[in-house]
Write a protein that binds this DNA or RNA. Structure first.
Length: 914
DNA sequence: CTCCTGGAAGAAGTA
DNA sequence: TGTACTTCTTCCAGG
């Protein structure tokens, strides 16, 4: 993987240097994870228990032994890279003295709220460690880190890890890490409650790693910092004049960094223009960014941290770490030093729960943040949280049993994300100028819950954290909703209280979107996605509900896709819903498409592509020009090329406004002429439009992946699916998304952790048809009925069903051993299919690219029609890492991507043979 | 002064 | 290889 980047080859060595020098950001993410963990890993890894837990987030406090770098490190990193990694996280931007010598810390991973981490930056790390760390071994230097800050957020993430590619470590652990969440260390042993267990199961927790850097080293000041920081101010922006051009390996250059591998010149931004010469962690003008970066960096290490954070937030403070208190968070930039002070001792960490609470409150309410105080206090323990939470790339249903997590008000389809170099561009808004609203139905307890929000992908693959975008916490006078940032495996997660007094409803006016530079992310080890034109995201909401049986039920809802680029948002057509998902091959039915940027001359083109990306069929649908409005288009479903199909055939269509202005692919399924049409659901919305009840399916191609509940949401009505009982509003609700039946979705319990089902394809998030949630439990997920309209078609069903359980999160390769073992669901059958949806085999999912961040690994790019190409779904062999195509990309893009992939493959083969 | 935004310049990537 | 067009990032300016 590492060797190919967007088709370009380069030597590891080069890479290495690059990474080190430039920014290690990317690299390490996944890897980095490992490295740190690595030491500890052995323990966990070997353990069977790990398996079970892998999935689970590291949440549980674990004892982590983090050696920042092992010997391996030195090899590669000597330079700095390795250290850098730690630094990055570990940095003590604040001047916490970086540890000069690397050390191995054995930490009981306490959980901290990630936000702390983020905010605090290095300091935070320190703090955390302090809290948790039980034993610290110092290793020979860890100097070279790169300042997380320097890195782009994304990079920062990567930076965390010690990832030099070269490092043996990574390679060794590579598998695991991809998704931090998955990472074995994460807490195999972790028991939610068992924080106590920490000790029992040593895991290397990523978070711990940071220790390497001594907190003391202030990022700014610290020697390490100097290297890394100075060199690369966090904001590394390529262009910034300030940056010296050279970034060279070390990125000493601030400006865009250009480096060449094998003759190919890459440009990377190492320095942010803005970056302040002073690399202060926060140096970047935008604090928030910085924080993010930090967090990101920390992430890797912090799976557990995340968990911890969650715990801290939500709950019991048992484990909580002092960290739970987001010291820095509040203050953010202002005083890193403070935080450092606190942390090192771990005093905070050790503080009594009460104290912590107090702290938390202060931080939140008190004052550092401008955010209006919210009645809700984070400090409040949340019993329900369990240490092990599903990885962010796991597909979860939106409803289960009586619970139904719904996005009542969808965000606008466009929101220009801001770069680190920019100021915030505000919170994501809803159409009416208001903000998105999320509500959990069916929850009658008095305990508040925590609503998690992260930025997910909007392509046709399984929903997963978006590698190029991060949620950005918005604070200020205009923000009424309290929020808290936490890093979870490289992904920033915003935690928002869901209070019974508010009917478990939250107005999301505190979430902005940060764009990470493509160059930073693409260089990350394991990152296979490309950023170019990969600009659509979804807001993904999650809530974890403790069940009486001790298990935790996790629900997830994803918003409609949001276009985040400046230009495309203005010009590209966007299909948000389609009234018909499938229809007999004879065609002829009118299909209503709703979305944005439709023009009188827009074309609706149906295409069928083979797995290899070749066009098998393409035809333009007849568009009712008179009906074209900016937001709607009515087209006649063209007859399929083969009227004699015996099984459903999945094709795609897109709206084209002209040469490079195509919408994403949307899925459509042709059914055998005589096949009964199951699906359609009446959609009131459309009725109102005057269109003969065309049920809308918001299933953009991307959304389709069964898992992701992409669709639009909102309508509760949607819940009704043909034939299926409507989701009882809220209570009765069945999990729309998950196919699986069992009410209890996921057993997050450490022991039986099953992955949640995939989100129902589009619906999950949305109110759409209710589908029984998939349970993690032993039972097999039902493959039957997907409620969503999409599913109406046989294919749809399949897709939808895709087994509820996902395998997504798997590690680098996407494959999780755990799954297989741990949950019943693991059974191949049970697994949901990939977005492509066709295949349902669990395996497919297993392959599914890991978290975007980690390493999506190979993603099946082409979509094939299920009927035709059953196998498409299969992921490419693990061995080869190919950049996955961003599914969101337009077809054109897809073509491009395919091209790239081919090149990559070619390259790979070349290398191999060479 | 900071936060939001919209607009756009300039560089890099693609066709 | 050069040109034209896109897309990405960074900047600037105004509210």
């Amino acid at each position: 993987m590492s060797f190919l980047h967007e088709g370009r080859e380069f030597d590891f060595s080069s890479v290495f240097e690059y990474s080190q020098g430039v920014q290690k950001e990317h690299e390490g993410d996944a890897y980095s994870y490992t490295p740190n963990v690595s030491l500890s890993l052995p323990v966990g890894m070997g353990n069977p228990c790990l398996a079970t837990q892998y999935h689970t987030l590291q949440s549980s406090p674990v004892i982590s032994v983090s050696s920042c770098h092992q010997t391996g490190y030195s090899l590669q990193n000597d330079n700095h890279a390795a250290p850098g990694y730690y630094l990055s996280h570990g940095l003590r931007p604040n001047g916490a003295p970086a540890l000069e010598s690397p050390r191995i810390e054995i930490t009981a991973y306490s959980q901290y709220p990630e936000d702390e981490v983020e905010e605090s930056n290095s300091e935070d790390h320190i703090i955390k460690r302090g809290v948790n760390s039980i034993v610290t071994l110092t290793l020979p230097n860890a100097d070279g880190y790169r300042d997380p800050s320097c890195l782009s957020p994304a990079s920062s993430v990567s930076s965390r890890s010690c990832n030099s590619e070269a490092s043996s470590y990574e390679s060794g652990f590579y598998n695991y890490d991809n998704s931090p969440q998955n990472s074995p260390w994460q807490s195999p042993c972790v028991s939610p409650k068992g924080s106590s267990t920490l000790m029992s199961c040593p895991h290397a927790s990523g978070p711990v790693a940071p220790p390497l850097h001594s907190p003391s080293t202030s990022p700014q000041i610290g020697a390490v910092a100097e290297e890394g920081w100075a060199a690369q101010p966090r904001g590394s922006r390529p262009n910034s004049p300030s940056c010296s051009g050279g970034g060279g390996v070390n990125n000493g250059g601030m400006g865009k960094r250009k480096y060449s591998f094998n003759g190919t010149t890459y440009r990377q931004t190492s320095c942010s223009p803005n970056q302040s010469p002073t690399p202060s962690p926060h140096g970047s003008p935008r604090v928030s960014v910085t924080d993010e970066i930090w967090q990101a960096n920390t992430n890797q290490y912090t799976n557990s941290a995340i968990v911890a954070a969650i715990n801290a937030l939500t709950t019991d403070g048992v484990v909580d770490m002092g960290e739970g208190i987001p010291i820095k968070t509040r203050k953010t930039m202002l005083d890193h030093s403070m935080s450092l002070k606190l942390d090192p001792d771990g005093e905070l960490c050790h503080e009594d729960y009460p104290s912590r609470l107090a702290l938390k409150k202060e931080s939140y309410c008190g004052g550092f943040l401008d955010v209006p105080q919210h009645p809700y206090s984070w400090s409040k323990p949340k019993p329900y949280l369990s240490p092990s939470l599903p990885a962010l790339d796991w597909q979860l249903p939106s409803c289960s049993g009586p619970y139904n997590l719904q996005i009542e008000v969808q965000p606008k389809s466009h929101h220009r994300a801001h770069y680190e170099t920019e100021g915030s561009r505000g919170a994501v808004k809803a159409l009416c100028g208001s903000h998105p609203v999320v509500q959990l139905y069916g929850y009658m307890e008095s305990e508040p819950l925590t609503l998690q929000l992260f930025i997910g992908t909007a392509d046709d693959r399984l929903l997963r954290p978006h590698a190029f975008y991060q949620v950005h916490r918005i604070t200020g006078k205009t923000v009424s909703t309290a929020s808290h940032e936490v890093m979870q495996s490289n992904t920033k997660v915003l935690e928002i209280p869901l209070l019974p007094e508010n009917n478990m409803r939250a107005i999301i006016d505190c979430a902005g979107i940060l764009k990470l530079r493509n160059s930073d992310i693409e260089l990350r080890k394991g990152e296979t996605d490309i950023g170019r034109k990969n600009t659509r995201v979804r807001l993904v909401f999650r809530v974890h509900i403790n069940q009486p049986n001790g298990r935790t039920l996790s629900l997830q809802a994803a918003s409609n896709p949001i276009e985040c680029s400046q230009r495309s948002a203005q010009e590209l057509p966007l299909v948000e819903k389609q009234s018909v998902d499938s229809y007999p091959a004879t065609g002829g039915k009118m299909m209503l498409l709703s979305g944005l940027n439709f023009l009188p001359d827009s074309k609706v083109v149906f295409v069928e592509k083979a797995q290899d990306g070749h066009h098998l069929w393409e035809t333009e649908a007849k568009v009712d020009r008179d009906s074209v409005k900016n937001s709607t288009v009515v087209a006649e479903i063209p007859p399929y090329r083969n009227q004699r199909i015996s099984s459903p055939v999945q094709v795609n269509f897109y709206v084209c406004n002209g040469k490079r202005k195509r919408s994403q692919y949307q899925r459509f399924t042709y059914l055998p002429p005589h096949a009964p049409i199951i699906k359609t659901e009446p959609n009131d919305e459309y009725d109102s439009l005057g269109i003969a009840r065309l049920p809308m399916h918001s299933k953009p191609y991307y959304s389709r992946p069964r898992l992701t509940p992409v669709m639009p949401v909102a309508d509760p009505d949607a819940c009704l699916v043909g034939g299926y009982p409507p989701c009882p509003p809220r209570h009765a609700a069945m999990p729309s998304s998950s196919p699986s039946s069992s009410p209890t979705l996921h057993d997050l319990s450490p022991v039986a952790y099953s992955k949640c089902l995939p989100n129902s394809p589009t619906h999950a998030a949305q109110p759409g048809p209710a589908v029984p949630p998939i349970q993690v439990t032993p039972g097999h997920p039902n493959l039957t009925h997907p409620a969503s309209p999409d599913h109406s078609s046989p294919l749809g069903v399949l897709h939808s069903q895709g087994s509820p359980i996902h395998l997504n999160s798997p590690g680098p390769h996407g494959y999780h051993p755990i799954y297989a073992n741990s949950s019943p669901s693991s059974s191949p059958v049970s697994h949901p299919s990939t977005p492509g949806g066709t295949a349902e085999s669990a395996f497919v999912q297993a392959y599914s690219p890991g978290p975007a961040q980690a390493a999506p690994g190979s993603a099946p790019t082409g979509r094939r029609s299920p009927g035709l190409l059953p196998e498409d779904a299969r992921p490419p062999s693990m061995g080869i890492t190919v950049k996955q195509e961003p599914q969101e990309l337009d077809q054109m893009y897809l073509d491009d991507v395919n091209e790239i992939i081919r090149n990559d493959l070619s390259s790979i083969s070349v290398h191999t043979h060479a």
